[in-house]
C-alpha cells in the first residue's frame, strides 16, 4: 500500500473540526445559490445572510433566548420524568417474566401511536401551557426507553446473575453491581436516541398548545409571514439538537463505561 494513501484516510481523524467546518460552509454556499437562483423572492426563500441578520435581531431583543429556554425547560422535565419511570420499569420487565407478560403487550400497543396523536387529549386534559407539551415529550421518550431497557436487561449474560447468587448478593446489590453497570453503555445510546425523538416532538407540541418555545416562534413567524424568523428558529433547533447529541455522546465516554473500551489508559 502507498503511504500517502494511508494519510488521506486519516484526514478525518486528524482534522475532524476542519472537515466538518468545510462541509458546513459548503452547505451554506449551496443554500445561498439556491436562494439566489430559485426565482423566489427573499420573503419566500431567504438566503443565509438575511437569516443570520434576523437571527442577530432576535438574539439582541431576547426573543430567541426566551423561546429556547422555554423549549429546553419542557424537554428537561418531560425527558427526566421518562427516564425516572422508564428505566426502572424496563429493568422490571427485563427481569420479571410475569410482569413482562402482563405489561409488555400494552407497551408495544401504545408505542407506535405517535405522540402527535395525543395532542387533542393532552390539550383537553392539561389545558394550555407547559403541561401538555411536557406530557407529549414524556410519551415520546418513555416508550422507546422502556422497550430498549427491557431488551438490554434481558440480554445480560446469565452467568453474572449466577455469580450474584453465588456471592450471596442482596437484591439491591444485584441491581447496583450487576444490572446497572451491565446496561449502562446500551442505555446511554438509548437515551441519546430517545432525547432526539423528544426534541422532535417538543417543537411539534409547541406549535399547538403553548405560546412560547421554538415551535411557537416558528408558527408565530409564519403567521407574520417572516420566513427569515422561521429559518432562524429551524437553525437554532438544529444547533441545539446537535449539542444535545454531543453531550450524550460525551456521556458515553465516561468512566462508568470505560470497562468496555479497549483503548483505556
Amino acid at each position: 500500500m502507498k503511504p500517502n494513501k494511508l494519510k488521506t484516510h486519516n484526514l478525518g481523524k486528524r482534522y475532524p473540526f476542519l472537515l466538518t467546518g468545510i462541509s458546513f460552509v459548503f452547505m451554506l454556499l449551496i443554500w445561498d445559490l439556491l436562494a439566489r437562483f430559485s426565482g423566489w423572492s427573499s420573503q419566500v426563500f431567504p438566503g443565509p445572510l438575511p437569516v443570520f441578520v434576523s437571527m442577530g435581531e432576535l438574539l439582541r431583543n431576547g426573543t430567541l433566548l426566551k423561546h429556547t429556554v422555554a423549549s429546553l425547560f419542557r424537554i428537561t422535565i418531560g425527558f427526566y420524568l421518562a427516564v425516572m419511570l422508564g428505566l426502572p420499569l424496563g429493568m422490571l420487565l427485563g427481569r420479571n417474566k410475569t410482569c413482562n407478560t402482563m405489561l409488555n403487550p400494552i407497551i408495544q400497543f401504545l408505542k407506535p401511536i405517535s405522540p402527535i396523536a395525543w395532542i387533542p387529549l393532552a390539550m383537553l386534559w392539561f389545558g394550555i401551557g407547559d403541561m401538555p407539551a411536557i406530557f407529549l415529550i414524556f410519551l415520546a421518550s418513555f416508550f422507546p426507553l422502556v422497550v430498549s431497557t427491557t431488551i438490554t436487561v434481558s440480554t445480560i449474560n446469565p452467568v453474572f446473575f449466577q455469580v450474584a447468587a453465588n456471592f450471596n448478593f442482596t437484591r439491591m446489590e444485584t441491581i447496583t453491581k450487576i444490572i446497572i453497570p451491565a446496561i449502562t453503555p446500551a442505555t446511554i445510546t438509548a437515551l441519546r436516541l430517545s432525547l432526539a425523538i423528544a426534541w422532535l416532538v417538543v417543537v411539534a407540541a409547541e406549535m399547538i398548545a403553548v405560546r412560547s418555545g421554538l415551535g411557537y416562534l416558528i408558527l408565530d413567524s409564519r403567521n407574520a409571514l417572516r420566513m427569515d424568523y422561521v429559518m432562524a428558529g429551524m437553525i437554532v433547533i438544529g444547533v441545539i439538537g446537535l449539542l444535545l447529541d454531543f453531550i450524550m455522546r460525551r456521556m458515553g465516554r465516561l468512566e462508568s463505561t470505560s470497562w468496555q473500551r479497549s483503548d483505556i489508559r
Binding site: 456471592f167 453491581k177 470497562w259
Partner: peptide, 16 residues
Amino acid sequence: SDNIFVFQNNGLLPWM
C-alpha cells in the same frame, strides 16, 4: 458463598 463456582467462561464482572 460456602461453595464457590468457578465458571468455564469468564465469571469476572467485566465492569469491575
